[in-house]
Design a protein around this nucleic acid. Structure first.
Lengths: 227, 227
DNA sequence: CCTGTTTATTAGTCTCAACTAATTTTTATT
DNA sequence: AATAAAAATTAGTTGAGACTAATAAACAGG
């Protein structure tokens, strides 16, 4: 198991999350890492030499199998730490990203496995994103953005995608959280905003922008997770 | 609160632990950090400019008040993490130093305070070393090396000083741990080795080298700690 | 008190990972 | 198709933090 520098790990992870199915582009990686395109190019060349990345100059980068494995281990660590921070230390879900970003670079196989065990092998993190297991396997779920739902649907909130601190803060304010069971009661024609109702009668108004980030599954589907 | 690099933090901590009361020497710092004296000199100059260290060339270094505060925060973090690893994740006390060394550099005020709370504000770490509180205060105890004890003394093991992995491993093998109540039953004239007996009748033989590292307090003194 | 040894410092080099500026390639627009 | 705009790469600097080699200061033994 090769030991990478922090910068190398950051780049591998960025390529991973920016190359959904396809390639990641230099500019986007630079933006993600708050760095410049030229620095990224150099790093991609280095990672290509190490066999972690396939880099086609001017056409983007994707991970090799080896790179994938490393990225998944980093994602695993990141999400386990987020889970720890929220479920054990009582952090708000809008406060954990930064810290987990640091913790994920601590290198100790044993630490990760013990932490996983301590948390009860959670399958999803506090934002609803799947946590890869020791072998990089993730529990897939069929989820759709709330915007895709029809009036009358009964759904369960299972994830917040691209969870910026401001979005999470807004959801906290409105009282929306992972696991909630909601009925879609109305959609405004003017702005696409949604009205939702909980079985206890409480109702919620969400803008289309917010609803786009909330992923749900049909309420009938049984939940897989429980941390 | 100035943000230091990892190397800077390591040097501050090294000066702290090597300058017990007095000064820390370049050579010793270098040895501690697995680096060379020349590198240390350069770093000391830098830390002196930042006002964290008083460096008298050729005569060693000591921390300023500012440097002290930083060192104590690092020690606090290190020992809290060690406690977490042992008491929550079930690590052996001989396995935690390396990992805590990494974790102590994670910078998040909130994380440290939450962790402290989660662990129940422990006053001592798994090796018996005191954990500075938020304000850098440590609970002092009057302890002596086991070698200083007389035949017939009843003592409680409270700390393992300079706990190398090999020493801790040996103690594990012999079944010696923090908190044990022991009677000093004999001392061999030939090599200074000690014989000790537990109230349950089990007896232990410890070499003088080992006994030197085991710090104890008179058994009558009530224990301060409980994690 | 001199001299060899130990310890520290200075000077100069190297690697990593960032940067800016200049150049090249691709893409988009007329 | 020509050219402007956008994106990527290359070249050359910089700073941090390590290193080696050379020099300087402090110390210890005779």
């Amino acid at each position: 198991m090769i030991q990478l520098t922090r910068a190398e790990e950051d780049h591998v992870k960025a390529v991973h999350s920016l190359s959904a199915g396809d390639k990641a582009f230099t500019k986007d990686i630079a933006e993600r890492l708050h760095t410049k395109a030229s620095s990224v190019t150099v790093m991609l060349k280095k990672l290509a030499e190490k066999g972690l990345v396939k880099h086609e100059p001017y056409y983007g980068a994707k991970l090799t199998v080896k790179g994938q494995a490393i990225a998944l281990r980093l994602v695993r660590k990141h999400r386990l730490w987020e889970t720890f921070l929220v479920h054990r230390l009582g952090f708000g879900w809008d406060e954990v990203h930064e810290v987990a970003e640091q913790l994920e670079h601590v290198s100790s196989e044993k630490l990760v496995e013990r932490l996983d065990e301590y948390l009860g092998h959670p399958a999803f993190d506090p934002h609803g994103d799947p946590i890869p297991d020791k072998d990089g396997k993730v529990k897939e779920r069929l989820t759709v953005p709330l915007t895709r739902c029809a009036i009358g649907d009964r759904v369960r909130v299972v994830a917040v995608k691209e969870p910026s601190d401001t979005l999470l803060h807004l959801l906290d304010r409105k009282g929306i959280s992972i696991g909630m069971l909601l009925d879609v009661t109305a959609r405004q024609a003017f702005d696409g905003s949604l009205e939702l109702r909980e079985k206890n009668g409480r109702s919620y108004m969400l803008s289309a922008q917010v609803a786009e980030h909330l992923h749900v599954e049909a309420a009938s589907a049984r939940r897989v997770e429980k941390t």
